[in-house]
Write a protein that binds this DNA or RNA. Structure first.
Lengths: 207, 207
DNA sequence: TCAATATCATATCAATCATTACAAATTGCA
DNA sequence: TGCAATTTGTAATGATTGATATGATATTGA
């Protein structure tokens, strides 16, 4: 079933590679700033091939949003979930987010969703829902790890998982906005230890 | 000197009103998504008049960025500085930022800088510097208030003003991104009391 | 009343936009 | 070897883009 030989002239591109290239173009120039000429050039694909494979520009755009949400945006989450110690895990999440926002091979900076896609939230149909979904899912996934730590006894039973998940996510938005604006990664990482502490401290709601 | 009568046919528009209208168009559609047709219609101005008054589209865009940075973006800062009690002041800042990101008369949501202008950071010359400047100035202005509270003895002498200023600013980015994505204002305000607490607590760096 | 001046409104410019016909090219299968 | 199937490459589509050239219109000062 995989890569079954088909009749007809073979494609010159891999769908996933073309999609990744398109993502980079949209990330760098935004939806409206990216022309079909920009896209076909970066994707190494012809106009007709692009339309045959991805529909039209708007459909391609939404596909790159899904691609980013399912892959790229997960990198910090994977770092978060892969670290055993919860304090190191929080720091790893933030460090990964900062690195990802400043060290892209393509040279683009920031977060595709918050620094680019957000612009089209009111204009391109369905984008607002995609953003909303990405936010909710990330909040949940972060909170799940905190819940796990509660069951393990590392975090207290009354630890407000979702509240702290939202906190982590919002701090991330600050980082990626700063990154898009040219802020230095190391400068942002200076506060990491402190920020991890406030995310995890148990008694902030009282006092 | 003010409003001096000049020879010639009088202008039909006020510069500041036209600029505010242009800001709303860019805010809603982004720089590339906003056409000159959109702009002239919203500004109630003719093409040639627009070019005579504001130069070209890019110059107008940069003017709206300055306009926003000097006026709109200051609203939460004014709320922050106008409240005597520091805890209430921090909450007022965040509440104002949330309100401003969700209750625009024009219907646009989020923050113009982080939800729209950021997209053009790498493409439109000078925008990255404007963003960088806005960030640094806001950080400073927030920190100044904390420094004042230190001299008043309300906050301890070793209170890390700039660190907490950055924290406040980054939390704000989370709020405005959520707002742009359609998140409810009241939902975001639920965490305000807690978030103010972590911004102001003195002993988070130790422990 | 009439120049002088400045803005308004309309029409238009070349360039670029997203999208698509059309024909050549490349494959599998009969 | 030739046909059917599929993609590629080129070129062209009409629409829209940002920006102007032109002339009518409105106001001031003499």
């Amino acid at each position: 079933m995989i890569d079954a030989k088909k009749v007809g002239r073979p494609k010159k591109f891999k769908r996933e590679d073309a999609l990744a290239a398109a993502l980079n173009v949209f990330w760098a120039k935004g939806y409206n700033g990216a022309s079909m000429k920009d896209l076909t050039a970066a994707m190494k694909i012809n106009g007709p091939s692009l339309y045959a494979e991805f529909g039209d520009k708007q459909t391609l755009y939404k596909l790159t949003i899904d691609e980013y949400a399912q892959n790229d945006a997960c990198a910090p989450l994977v770092a978060f979930e892969g670290e055993d110690d919860i304090d190191k895990a929080v720091q790893a999440f933030m460090a990964a987010a900062i690195d990802y926002a400043t060290l892209q091979n393509s040279g683009v900076k920031g977060c595709f969703l918050s620094s680019c896609v957000a612009t089209t939230a009111g204009e391109v149909e369905g984008v607002e829902a995609k953003l909303q979904n990405a936010i909710i899912e990330t909040d949940k996934r972060l909170a799940n790890r905190f819940d796990l730590e509660i069951t393990k006894g590392v975090l207290p039973a009354n630890f407000p998982s979702l509240q702290r998940a939202r906190l982590m996510f919002d701090l991330r938005q600050g980082h990626v906005f700063r990154a898009r604006s040219g802020c230095d990664a190391d400068e942002m990482k200076q506060d990491l230890e402190y920020r991890s502490k406030i995310v995890l401290q148990a008694d902030a709601t009282s006092a």
